[in-house]
Amino acid sequence: MEKKPLMKIEDLSKFYQMGEVTVKALKNSSFEIYEGEFVVILGPSGSGKSTLLNILGGMDKPTTGRFFLREEEVTKYNEKMLTNYRRDKIGFVFQFYNLMANLTAKENVELATEICKDPLNIENVLNDVGLADRKNHFPSQLSGGEQQRVAIARAVAKNPLVLLCDEPTGALDYKTGIAILSLLSKINRQYKKTVMLITHNAPIAQMADRIIKMRSGEIVENEINENQIDPEGIEW
């Protein structure tokens, strides 16, 4: 049976007006993402990666073009519909963890699930990300890697269709970064979540099902990776 795309992006562009200068952050980008894929969007700073992720996450609107989640055209959504889309369909993981300092790890995850329609079991998710023994600690009592695990648990527990990760290893040392990549790979397989990870770190692309390369606001390559390696084999 032929797979149907989970996300379909058609000629997306995003322009910003900076005084008299028009900044073309994203230019005529088109591609498809299939359910259950682990996708790495690779490119240097300023290549348009974050702009693209913000549009796919419903945090920004394109200047031109269309974007579909299954049969729904997200680019036609009003603000209320976009809020529901971000709440129910998307899980976000950022470079900086954005945890509530006065809440424990478990409470940070609970806070996200309280507004969702069909959240996962919090205890199970915390256990799966390796935080069963640290769930009652506050962020200040956790290492950077542990805080990122809380952020991932918070995103996954919402039970979203897509996990969007913006440089999730950028603030971590190599060893901890590999552990986080291994965790994201586990989430992709175990929970069957579509994962999109943006990075400027080229070796990370080796673990992806699909690699999308960006430069100067444009997609310059979109290819299936036939030679995936486990995160533990990645070096940089």
Rank of each mutant, 00 (worst) to 15 (best):
S143M: 00
G48S: 08
L142H: 02
I90N: 06
K135R: 05
R189M: 04
F68W: 03
V156F: 00
N108E: 13
S30W: 06
G58I: 01
A171N: 15
N102R: 14
I55S: 05
Q206H: 09
L120I: 15
Y85W: 08
S45A: 09
L6C: 04
D128V: 09
H137F: 08
R87A: 04
K76I: 02
E232M: 08
V156C: 07
A205D: 04
A153K: 12
T51M: 13
M1L: 05
A208L: 07
E123N: 11
N136A: 10
E114V: 06
Q190A: 14
T63N: 00
L6G: 02
F92P: 13
M196Y: 04
E79G: 01
N54R: 06
M7R: 12
K27Q: 04
V93F: 02
P119R: 02
K4T: 08
E218T: 15
G145V: 00
T104P: 11
C165H: 01
A208R: 03
I41T: 14
G36L: 10
V23S: 04
D166W: 06
V39P: 07
G144H: 14
D128N: 09
P62Y: 03
Y77F: 08
K8A: 14
C165G: 03
K4N: 08
L197Q: 07
D88C: 02
L12M: 05
F38D: 00
E10S: 05
D209C: 11
A153L: 00
L197S: 10
K186D: 15
F38C: 10
A157S: 13
S182P: 14
N108S: 13
K80P: 01
D88K: 08
N136F: 11
K106M: 00
I219Y: 14
S140R: 15
N28W: 05
E107Y: 00
N54L: 03
C165V: 01
L142W: 04
Y191R: 08
E35R: 11
D209Y: 10
C165Q: 01
V129I: 01
I187R: 06
I178D: 07
H137P: 05
Q206E: 15
T199G: 05
S29E: 05
K192Q: 07
P203G: 03
E35P: 08
D11F: 09
T199P: 02
Q17A: 09
G57C: 08
V162S: 06
M59K: 03
